[in-house]
Design a protein around this nucleic acid. Structure first.
Length: 714
DNA sequence: AGTAAAAGGTTTTTT
DNA sequence: ACCTTTTACT
């Protein structure tokens, strides 16, 4: 550890790119030389500072092509760069390499992946694809009749990903996080092996592979070339990076004793670390000075966002972290303060039940609007995606427009995946996963037929797929589309009409003369044919396809469209009433996770009941509880002027339909000690609370990655 | 043998 | 709402 309270010299820096920054922000933006860690509390102008730093670098003559800006979402990168271009350095910002770790990995691997025997045309599996692949592999391996229920494919995928990202042994992950699956350790080992083999033979990478291969390449013969790409690396939300990402940063950095070292600047707030479930590790931030010797730290503590009554609540909540119930929560002591001393006190509202809560929030939202706070300046935040279900109904009833972030996205809906599978088959006829999805939707096609078709299309499992010198799969699988169109395939007679339509549509699209949006239109009749049999509510699902076509309208090439969609999926949930027009006013509904980095004038935090926040799934261990505490902190600090926290005394556990049980709840344990800082009230019937460096051979990287993976489950 | 329909279960948060 | 297993039907 290092001393974060070391005095920081703050030279009187003047430069147009630094206008409007306070002394600490200015020092951070203008700092040169040794690695820099900016500890930036909530609302302390982190985005502004990072943007100013990029602007200042460019203004001082840095080549924007040689700056790498890693952010948590692409939206964050865009916002930052747009702020740069508003200042003196206008256009240069567009040439900065910016994006998420995964998107940058995708870009670098297409260029340097040859050193890992990776074809430049590899495809990326998103979370859902990877889960589907586990499903396919599982049936192929034939796990059944085991007395107990075999874990769901989502669970298998989650176990795998946790194991890889945290770099822990399978046994450890099972013991700690998935004790109810411990009986299946051997079967899981088999599955993981088959899963990896399938990915490799198909030239396909999952999200985790993108990071693993990037890291692998940094220690391969092309590592030096990759380290030479950038003079500056800036990383946002450093507290939410995982160990592999930390390795990547180190691997991409020319050390400080190099004649021309890479300048590293990481920004983060350990009080806002909320992605532990994804194996993010705050320790990256805590160990920054060990990973980057000589590092300097600058702390930003002046909050420009919230009024002090709101900050008082947030600080008091976070202060509980010192108590005995938690593990270590934060290392970097900071106390946010604000000059916005006036302002109304936050409200804490007890609602008698969920319906009451929804009604109250809807009215509070309308009331705020009457006081001049537009809907777009308000947000409703909650722990889990389904916590807004009731409220959504209430809002719809009152014609209050809203957009929901987080929760289930429309890309994850079955019917959208159906259509994307069709596009993927066209784009890459060797994409077995997409073929599976397409063929399985035909009536009369079950597991057995699927297996037969799989072989007949050339995806048989004898030996590895033949590859050419560049590692590209050769003819045998590449012409699966031709084989399908040639109609010498025997398909069930029940699917005769569907098959005919499918052949026509794919044939028309395969000519390559259509744009992505037109292809979607051409494929729609086929969907009309299969949706009624597959889904209970085909009409709205078909309507979604038009929505997708309009999204695709922005793209000229199918390839670009598909890649963008997997690496940077739209975060909005499909909205029933159609997307609001840009000039309309709408309310934001969001999970706290998805609200990270954002702010609103008025924030309504709902379902602040114990069991929901903290989630009763996280109550087991100290680390989990600490993360829930930080999550509440993140939620509270999104508010600028007004904060309303509500919780229902009674809510339904609508896990499974049958018994419509309701459960009595208490206020979140994190808020109970802080009650006096709120103006308290209750709705209708509620009264009080109820008790209750050696270069390795070129193919080595893939082998190395595989060997590492195997070591985790052997 | 193989598919479809019906019954029985289901641990948040997301790049 | 969706997935897995079981049962019934062709």
């Amino acid at each position: 550890m290092f001393d974060s309270s070391a005095p920081v010299d703050l030279p009187a820096l003047t430069h147009p790119a630094l206008d409007g920054l306070n002394p600490e922000q200015r020092a951070a933006a203008a700092h040169r030389g040794v690695p820099l860690l900016i500890v930036a509390g909530a609302g302390t102008g982190k985005t502004k500072t990072l943007a100013a730093r990029v602007g200042h670098l460019v203004a001082e003559g840095a080549d924007p092509n040689r700056i790498l800006l890693l952010t948590f979402t692409r939206r964050a990168a865009e916002e930052m760069l747009s702020r740069v271009s508003n200042s003196a350095t206008n256009r240069a910002a567009a040439r900065v390499w910016s994006g998420t770790f995964h998107a940058i990995a995708n870009r670098l691997l297409r260029q340097y992946g040859g050193a890992a025997a990776l074809s430049p045309s590899f495809t990326v599996l998103d979370q859902a694809d990877s889960t589907d692949l586990f499903g396919i592999v599982r049936t192929a391996e034939g796990f059944a009749e085991r007395g107990k229920r075999f874990p769901r494919k989502e669970t298998i995928s989650a176990i795998y990903s946790r194991m890889v990202n945290s770099q822990q042994k399978l046994g450890t992950v099972l013991d700690v996080d998935y004790p109810w699956c411990a009986d299946y350790a051997d079967d899981l080992r088999t599955l993981f092996g088959a899963y990896t083999a399938t990915k490799r033979s198909q030239q396909v990478l999952d999200y985790d592979d993108l990071l693993l291969f990037w890291r692998g390449l940094t220690v391969s013969p092309v590592g030096g070339a990759m380290r030479d790409l950038f003079d500056h690396i800036l990383i946002d939300e450093y507290q939410d990076t995982n160990p592999i990402q930390a390795d990547i940063i180190r691997g991409m950095t020319r050390p400080f004793d190099d004649p021309c070292p890479t300048e590293v600047c990481a920004v983060g707030d350990d009080a806002q670390a909320i992605y532990g479930f994804r194996s993010a590790s705050v320790e990256n931030m805590w160990a920054f000075a060990e990973h980057f010797p000589g590092a300097r730290t600058i702390t930003l503590e002046e909050n420009y966002r919230s009024t002090s009554p709101i900050l008082a609540v947030a600080n008091a909540v976070l202060a509980q972290a010192a108590g005995p119930s938690f593990g270590e929560v934060t290392h970097f002591a900071k106390e946010l303060w604000s000059t916005r001393t006036s302002g109304i006190r936050p409200r804490l509202i007890t609602a008698s039940d969920e319906t009451d809560q929804s009604r109250f929030v809807a009215e509070a939202v309308l009331d705020a609007r009457e006081r001049g706070i537009d809907l777009r300046e308000q947000a409703v935040l909650f722990r889990a995606g389904h916590h807004s279900d009731g409220l959504e109904l209430e809002l719809a009833r009152r014609d209050i427009p809203f957009v929901k972030y987080g929760g289930l996205k429309y890309l994850e809906a079955g019917h959208v995946k159906d259509l994307l599978a069709l596009l993927r088959v066209l784009e890459n006829p060797a994409d077995v996963l997409a073929w599976h999805r397409v063929l399985a939707t035909l009536s009369g096609v079950g597991p057995a037929t699927l297996r037969r078709l799989n072989d007949e299309l050339g995806f048989g499992n004898e030996g590895d797929a033949p590859v050419d010198a560049d590692g590209v799969p050769t003819t045998r699988t590449a012409n699966a589309l031709d084989r399908f169109l040639d109609s010498d395939l025997k398909l069930p007679s029940a699917a005769a009409e569907q098959t005919k339509e499918l052949r026509n549509a794919l044939g028309a699209c395969a000519t390559g003369s259509l744009r992505p949006a037109e292809e979607i239109d051409r494929l729609k009749p086929f969907c009309q044919l299969i949706f009624p049999a597959k889904y209970d509510n085909p009409a709205p699902r078909l309507a979604d396809l038009d929505h997708l076509a309009s999204t695709a309208g922005a793209y000229r090439s199918r390839d670009r469209f598909l890649t963008e969609l997997t690496l940077d999926p739209p975060s909005k949930t499909s909205e029933q009433a159609g997307p609001p027009h840009l000039d309309d006013d709408w309310l934001t509904l969001s999970t706290i996770h998805s609200a990270k980095g954002m702010e609103w004038k008025s924030v309504h935090l709902i379902h602040a009941a114990d069991g929901n926040l903290p989630s009763d799934m996280a109550i087991g261990d100290k680390a989990g509880l600490a993360e829930e505490l930080r999550l509440l902190y993140v939620g509270l600090t999104r508010a600028r002027d007004e904060l309303t926290v509500t919780f229902p005394l009674r809510f339904h556990v609508h896990r499974q339909g049958l018994d419509d049980r309701h459960v009595y709840a208490q206020l979140s344990r994190f808020l109970e000690p802080v009650r006096p800082l709120f103006d308290q009230g209750h709705t209708g019937a509620a009264e009080g609370t109820v008790d209750l460096t050696d270069p390795i051979a070129s193919v080595g990287v893939a082998d190395e990655v595989d060997a590492m993976l195997f070591s985790l489950w052997d």
